[in-house]
Design a protein around this nucleic acid. Sequence first.
DNA 1: CTGAAAGCGCTTACAG
DNA 2: CTGAAAGCGCTTACAG
Lengths: 333, 333
Amino acid sequence: MARAAGVAPSTVSYVLSGKRSISEETRRQVEQSVRKLGYHPHAGARALASSRTKVLALVVPLRADLNMAVMMQFVSSVVTAAREHDHDLLLLTKDEGPQGLRRVTSSAIADALIVMDVEAADPRVPVLRSLDRPVVLIGAPDQITPMGLTCVDLDFTAAGASCVGHLADLGHRSIALIGPSPAVYKRGTSFAGRFLRGFTDAAKVRGVRATSHPCAPGYEATRACLDELLAEEPKVTGLIVHNEAVLPAVLTELQRRGRRMPEDLSLIAVCPDAMADNQPVSLTTVAIPATELGEMAVEMIIRQLEQKAPSAPETRLLSPRLTQRASTAPRKS
Amino acid sequence: MARAAGVAPSTVSYVLSGKRSISEETRRQVEQSVRKLGYHPHAGARALASSRTKVLALVVPLRADLNMAVMMQFVSSVVTAAREHDHDLLLLTKDEGPQGLRRVTSSAIADALIVMDVEAADPRVPVLRSLDRPVVLIGAPDQITPMGLTCVDLDFTAAGASCVGHLADLGHRSIALIGPSPAVYKRGTSFAGRFLRGFTDAAKVRGVRATSHPCAPGYEATRACLDELLAEEPKVTGLIVHNEAVLPAVLTELQRRGRRMPEDLSLIAVCPDAMADNQPVSLTTVAIPATELGEMAVEMIIRQLEQKAPSAPETRLLSPRLTQRASTAPRKS
DNA sequence: CTGAAAGCGCTTACAG
DNA sequence: CTGAAAGCGCTTACAG
């Protein structure tokens, strides 16, 4: 390559990296040869010499109880954002555990880590903290920031409160939450707990009756959950569904039971907006901003990589956005 | 590392790779130091010296008209299988196009490529063929094998035929297919066309009436599609849904219109079996074996990497598996 | 059974 | 503004 352009290898390197000024002429010379030969520097050699791989690692959970479609939205937006910043994306699974994280960083496969689905008491947290590479969590575990990790997430507490606020404003006095699978709460996946807390606290403040119903995946579980919920007195007139996997089943069952939306029941779905499109009714939603979160995570990581000094850990919580559509209405008194 | 174990660097390398015999004693010595120091060889250095990265690249489509949940199943199984074979997975998107493939291979970021969603006249095909690295396609484009690429896929032609066969055996004489979005056919994504061909040909052979209804995503499109389909004469009594995204909407709409399953209408869903679980009725399915396909792709790639001589391209088509459940029954005469 | 040495293809101080 | 040289951390013939 260097000889094709009639310059020294170092010059090629400098042209490509822009790390020092180059005369118009040699730059053109080099760029032309690069194009002609379809030259791409050897990634391993570059990594070895520069200690930079230009690879980001994303650790995803592969859990049946988390929604695959939502996961894929995160993955999509992270890989797209990474490429926009001239980085590649390595995919890791949660199954690799703490040692997987060590492997990837200590063998210099990736420069930084984006980690999803961190649980309370997650054994990966201490490792992540000791890694000495930029780390951003998507999803904020309770109490992580003081422990020194950077997170981005939807403000699920505010999201829970905002749902309650909307329903209360519409006059609903008895509301219910269909939440994620019990297994999700049990693992201490904090988004579930935070949403629930926001929901509960806001209900107390607004003086409305509020019950919570975690729901396992599968149609049977959904039906059972609705049985329980609809039997309550006073009658539930406001429903929040914070569980993408069972949302279609909930809608189908409500219809089968003759509960009309919004006449008999107002419903808010907490899910990516794209998902609301496939539903029979235009749903009032609190959006899960998967795409923005993925982009933000990448941008924060890239910024950390650009500055040599490790930046102070921060937590960025996106404010929830509630969009009213046809599935919520004032309570019929 | 080498000094910690009191041996030469080359010895460490040989212990780790197993490429030559080592005395019990030095092996133990080395292994112990490896554990103690948490040593992992530098991936870039290894790649540079050995021309092997131990990284597989997976190229996924990020298209709204392909089902995200199904995509994620493929991704999951590929990454899991790759790790089982001691390889990492780099994720690329279709958006990167032909030059993305060149970039990844010519900069030696990955050893081999697994590519999804290859279309008719896909500009990536000639590039893929010229790449001189193992390539496996998930999803067999028509006419690709003679062009020299290895593929794995479900035998969609047989799948279409098998659906028709099942319904015809049950006595249905007028059947319909709700297929993927028109955009999918237009792109020449071959699974859609192959399924349709199997469906059409088998219907001809069995002498049943058969119509095809591509369906765009979204509830409105689904409703329109059903309007058209249910207006047909003679009345459709057998329905095949080969479109995961609209399946829940189809079921909801059928119920809303008072069409009972299987009394009024027998329905077969073509989708991953996991997806059938979340539906109100236990559905007769032809499974899309995403997990198996991903595993097979990885195994074929790994095998190609192990043998130095490039192996002859082959196409492996999995036979469809139809599982009868509660949504299909003999036609009420 | 093991080691010394060359070399993989870059980047980056060091010189000029 | 540019080049020669060292060095990144491995692997793999080459010797013994």
